[in-house]
Amino acid sequence: MTSADDSGTADPVGSTESVVDTSSGLSDRATTRSDTIVEAKGVDVFYGEDQALQDISMEIPEKQVTAMIGPSGCGKSTFLRCINRMNDQIDVCRVDGEIEFRGKNIYDDDVDPVVLRRRIGMVFQQPNPFPKSIYDNVAYGLKIQGKTEDMDQKVENALKGAALWDEVKDKLHTSGLDLSGGQQQRLCIARAIAVDPQVILMDEPASALDPIATAQIEDLIEELSRDFTVVIVTHNMQQAARISDKTAVFLTGGELVEFDDTNRIFENPQSQRVEDYITGKFG
């Protein structure tokens, strides 16, 4: 069992870096698309006495898009936050079971959540750029890590990776808050990929955006999956169908009912409960 209080370690970087960071360089990454990068094994999550997730086991494949769908309160965002230990910040939250990142249990005592979150980044529902310039937003994580060499190039690469460069290259030093909602979200994605993560978690990244901005984010997610593993929580089942390779269906009670190739989930789900949910026969 690992609780939120266990996150502090005597060796905050050492062994964590050595395990979690073994393949920090892109060239060190496994190239087979079907390799598992994150594996949950019997994960239970409790908020105080309430159980939010029950015995979740799943293997998230590398460099693919995995979508998590399900009704409100089914635990899909809770599970997403478990993957980079965001739930550590909630005092009453307790996580049982294991979540392995490249074979290392991220809830082991020797794992530093800060280092972990460099490897497993997060993009939230509401775009949340810092009240800084576009440039500084992207450079922020790199500066914290002391990776200031070739900063201009790194910022440009991240903005290009987030399909934002062409729109902002002439105003890099204006405030990130002056961008449109869709641009702000892509700026947040640029900020996330600037520190060279291996997994990007996205919690409803397009739900606050208009259809055009949503389409841009969806295109971007497909692009990102060439270099990164993307795990996305979405309420929009059609979005999951459009952009994901794998889909996990969580249903009420915090249960992972089905996890399979997306085309199989949407053409021929094995579970009647999943069929009823995705066809709208129950809400």
Binding site: M237, Q238, A241, F266, E267, N268, P269, E275, I278, T279
Partner: peptide, 9 residues
């Protein structure tokens, strides 16, 4: 209606 699963088939 964006049918899926049995409805789509």
């Amino acid at each position: 209606q964006q049918p899926v699963a049995g409805d789509l088939r």
